[in-house]
Design a binder for these strands. Structure first.
Length: 222
DNA sequence: AAGTCGCT
DNA sequence: CACT
């Protein structure tokens, strides 16, 4: 079973998920303590909310964002917005410890010049999930996606270029980071329903940070 | 009418 | 499966 492939991964090891896709096991563990207070401030300024898909259904996962651009979804589609539609205000600034972690993780995975301007923050309570999808709303697909797992464990699905392609199941724990870009940038991915549990630091939830470059290539969105 | 960062 |  695929779980056996991942069963004995040492902290700090890098596991290749594709030509340009990596699981960096435990990469965020050291940074997590500095990250969590900053994250708490972000969430206070821009609370989690349930967005609707263009199909008109509410996502089970709750989302918010920080950075100069935030990911939003409604009946009109997916897009990046400069303002939080719930408040009309700018998204909270991306805290430096978050940005630096993302840049370091990208570099460790072979993407040395990652400058994220958006961080989508997803909150998974037990039972919630995210079905297979592509991240394709960013203009510069040369920049990777950096995904940081915090709190409860989950099973990440890493698929192919078509939704129907078989997906690899990747167990993710608090502190794990997945990076994908280049030829793997548009691979379908998702998260299986999160199992009930309580994490010592985060309680009954998993929080995923996905860092992206959502503004123009190389440009200074801020 | 193909596709759904959907659900059962 | 049902909805857009």
């Amino acid at each position: 079973m695929s779980g056996d492939l991942f069963a004995g991964i040492a902290a700090g090891s890098r596991l290749q998920l594709g030509d340009q896709a990596w699981l960096l096991h435990g990469f965020a563990l050291a940074a997590a303590d500095a990250l969590l207070p900053a994250l708490k401030d972000v969430i206070q300024a821009a609370p989690f909310r349930h967005m609707c898909t263009p199909g008109g259904r509410a996502m089970s996962v709750a989302t918010t964002s920080c950075g100069t651009l935030g990911w939003v979804s409604d009946r009109g589609g997916y897009r990046y917005a400069r303002h939080d539609p719930a408040s009309g205000r700018d998204w909270p600034t991306m805290p430096a410890p978050m940005r630096e972690l993302a840049t370091a993780a990208a570099a460790a995975a072979g993407f040395p010049d990652f400058r994220p301007d958006a961080c989508l923050i997803n909150r998974y309570r037990p039972g919630t999930r995210l079905s297979l999808h592509q991240d394709r709303d960013e203009p510069d697909l040369g920049q990777p996606i950096v995904s940081v797992s915090l709190g409860l464990p989950a099973t990440f699905l890493f698929g192919g270029m078509a939704r129907s392609d078989r997906a690899v199941r990747v167990p993710l724990d608090h502190g794990d980071v997945v990076v994908w870009g280049g030829v793997d940038r548009l691979r379908f991915h998702g998260v299986l329903p999160v199992a009930p549990g309580v994490h010592p630091q985060l309680g009954a939830q998993r929080i995923n940070l996905t860092f992206r470059r959502a503004g123009p290539a190389g440009g200074t969105t801020a």
